[in-house]
């Protein structure tokens, strides 16, 4: 399953859905919202936006790449949109494979590819302003609107 969703990610259900008698391994990667602190300020939440349906299609392409590169039987990638509070999951990747090596490698590949090619953007909302991650555009003192 490949999906971009606005609601909380149900990681347990994703893993349950990947259980299969022909697989001996399920590798799971969950990216979560971390509270960074700097200069007396802290991240309050993250907000994600996406270019759809291109982003949906790119997730499916990553799944197809993984199936070409490794012997895996099941790949799920879910990414959240909108506001994500601290400690919540923003992305979940579940790969089931007959053996653990391909499951580990494929799940790592999926998150790295997401960060390279999927048109999704993250805005960090701090107690003293916001920053578009990757562009350094925002209203915090350090960013000051300059790219």
């Amino acid at each position: 399953m490949f999906a971009i969703v606005e609601e909380s990610l149900e990681v347990g259900a994703l893993i349950q859905g990947a259980l299969s008698p022909d697989c001996g391994a399920i590798a799971t990667f969950v990216g979560t919202t971390r509270i960074d602190e700097s200069e007396g300020a802290a991240v309050e939440y993250l907000e994600y936006e996406a270019y759809r349906p291109m982003a949906d299609r790119k997730l499916e392409e990553i799944g197809a790449e993984i199936e070409r590169l490794w012997d895996v039987r099941h790949v799920s990638i879910l990414h959240r949109l909108g506001k994500v509070d601290p400690g919540e999951a923003s992305v979940a990747i579940v790969v089931a494979a007959p053996r653990r090596g391909p499951a580990f490698e494929a799940s790592r590949y999926a998150i790295e590819r997401i960060k390279e090619v999927v048109p999704i953007w993250k805005r960090e909302v701090w107690s003293d302003g916001y920053v578009w991650v990757g562009s350094q555009v925002g209203t915090r003192g350090l960013a000051s609107g300059k790219p």
Binding site: Y51, H79, S90, V91, K115, V117, P119, I120, W121, G134
Partner: peptide, 10 residues
């Protein structure tokens, strides 16, 4: 045409 800043998903 879409104008895409550096992506930052994950």
């Amino acid at each position: 045409v879409a104008v895409l800043p550096p992506v930052s998903g994950g």
